[in-house]
Design a protein around this nucleic acid. Structure first.
Length: 151
DNA sequence: GCCAACGTTGGC
DNA sequence: GCCAACGTTGGC
């Protein structure tokens, strides 16, 4: 079982939105970065634990825990001409983008990026590195443990 | 709203 | 295959 951090803009899908969905589950659609796609497609397994992170908002930070509830499958939005995630180069025979399903586990207090930066134990976290833009990053078990204790 | 950093695109 | 130009991300 592995650990991940997944960013979502709360104006798009917040932790509360996730908690309110049917089965508290959502397809992690819209990822259009190959590295992040590969994490979902090639490495994520059902039961993997996820820090749910709010980005591009007033208070960026970890706000809850979720888990992978379905293995990766083709992202439906790539085939939808009306979606902003439509990809004309993707076909049903040759899908380019994949997503897993993620299920709500629980909310936590907000552990914002400033607080995360304040712990030397977490300084190697990918999201704290300068210029980091990757929306899905692996979390080291030690880091998961450390952050869990803060909650 | 700014802008540094990054990934992607496409001409050569 | 290089790399300049461009678009996007995301904290501030």
């Amino acid at each position: 079982m592995r650990y991940w951090l997944m960013k979502s803009e709360p104006s798009d899908v917040s932790i509360d939105d996730l908690a309110k969905r049917d089965n508290k589950t959502i397809a992690w659609y819209g990822v259009r970065n190959y590295q992040a796609r590969n994490f979902m497609r090639d490495q994520m397994k059902v039961g993997d634990q996820v820090f749910f992170y709010h980005s591009s908002c007033k208070q960026p930070g970890i706000v809850g825990i979720a888990e992978v509830s379905k293995l990766a499958y083709p992202d439906a939005t790539q085939f939808d001409p009306d979606s902003k995630y439509f990809d004309p180069k993707a076909t049903a025979e040759n899908p380019r983008w994949f997503n897993v399903d993620v299920r709500f586990v629980n909310k936590t207090r907000l552990i914002d990026i400033k607080e995360l930066r304040s712990y030397p134990e977490l300084k190697s976290m990918r999201i704290l590195q300068k210029g980091n833009r990757l929306s899905i990053t692996p979390i080291d078990p030690m880091e998961w443990e450390y952050i869990s204790r803060l909650m």
